[in-house]
């Protein structure tokens, strides 16, 4: 399959922002509940497109892709993210993904500094399938040695009384990230919405931040390819990658080769109104995502439950990834 057509890869933020400015999202957070907005009958095709995008990760994207056709490398491709007005109204007992999607759209209408992205991972629901790990590898086209969200496995007890615990580990997007102050060139910093970003052009590859992260969420791109030196180099590996609102070509041995890399909550997807890939690909809906500043949001609710746990809280990093035990 032609690489650039694979579709639904979130393009750069600049173009995204331009699109959002050009076509402002309809409806304020309150609007969907007012009768007038209900009356505005939901265009069925749009609704279906929205559902398709929601219907989880890469597969849905592949379905949507043929409709796109050949597009320039950096142009937005794939199905557009559903707009708030396109989403069905909230109702009791709706799927968590539906609710998170609506909350995401709501949050995107606020100025960036009023958002505070957070993630909740329900360890009781995680079966250790590693779908999120692989979806993330595919979404971000990660090379060998680079993984943003491994699923840690721990065996508890002795045969025959054994149980296993699985713990997906994305970047914690700490409120007090130890990786940020140690960077000698300020190449990593917190965005106003709380995501810790890496500027690939600024990073000199000293790897000091990797030693400073208590969660080993940062990895180094050594420049390897899975298939480049094999008899059959695969086109998918030569594709451009999209991160932090820019496109990168690893085959030129330029950034992000030689850089430190990490999970960024799928920034490009967020800017396009899509949930992070690990959230939509989770087979058991064990990963939740949303705006912690919105006290009515699902993640805000869940992160306030008494069985919540954050990794290595004693270090004072204040992670924004919450684990439900």
């Amino acid at each position: 399959m032609d690489g650039e057509d694979r579709g639904a890869k979130p393009p750069g933020a600049p173009s995204t922002q331009a699109r959002r400015v050009g076509r402002p999202l309809v409806g304020s957070p309150d609007e969907p509940s007012t009768p007038s907005s209900r009356r505005r009958s939901v265009d069925r095709r749009r609704f279906m497109a929205g559902l398709t995008t929601l219907a989880a990760g890469a597969m849905a994207q592949a379905v949507a892709a043929p409709a796109v056709g050949a597009a320039p490398a950096d142009a937005p491709v794939g199905a557009p993210a559903p707009r708030l007005a396109d989403l069905p109204p909230a109702r009791d007992g709706e799927a968590a993904l539906m609710r998170m999607q609506r909350e995401l759209q709501k949050a995107l209408q606020k100025p960036i500094e009023q958002r505070r992205w957070g993630m909740v991972i329900d360890l009781r629901k995680c079966v250790g399938c590693s779908a999120c790990t692989i979806a993330c590898k595919a979404e971000n086209r990660l090379p060998p040695g680079v993984v943003y969200r491994p699923v840690l496995e721990e065996e508890i007890g002795e045969y025959p009384n054994v149980t296993r615990r699985f713990m997906p580990r994305p970047c914690m997007q700490c409120e007090n990230p130890p990786c940020v102050p140690v960077c000698p060139v300020g190449a990593t910093y917190k965005r106003p919405d709380g995501i810790v970003e890496i500027n690939y052009e600024q990073c000199i590859g000293c790897r000091y931040c990797m030693t400073a992260c208590p969660y080993q969420a940062r990895v180094f791109d050594s420049g390897d390819f899975y298939t480049l030196d094999s008899p059959a180099p695969q086109p998918y590996e030569m594709l451009k990658t999209y991160e932090y609102g820019r496109s990168y070509d690893r085959t030129k041995h330029e950034s992000p080769v030689g850089n430190v890399r990490k999970c960024h909550f799928c920034l490009g997807r967020l800017d396009n109104g899509m949930l992070p890939e690990c959230v939509t690909s989770c087979i058991g809906v064990a990963t939740y995502f949303g705006d912690l500043n919105d006290e009515t949001s699902l993640v805000a609710e869940m992160s306030a439950s008494p069985n919540v746990h954050r990794l290595k809280e004693e270090l004072g990093t204040k992670p924004r990834v919450f684990y439900l035990m």
Binding site: P181, V182, C183, V185, Q202, C206, D221, V257, G258, V260
Partner: peptide, 26 residues
């Protein structure tokens, strides 16, 4: 030679971040 991007070492002089022990070291 250990740097991921050796030819960007000059950035430590131009964009040094005073909170970093590494910047101080350089």
């Amino acid at each position: 030679l250990d740097l991921g991007h050796p030819f960007r070492f000059w950035k430590v002089y131009v964009n040094a971040q005073p909170t970093s022990m590494m910047a101080w070291m350089v």
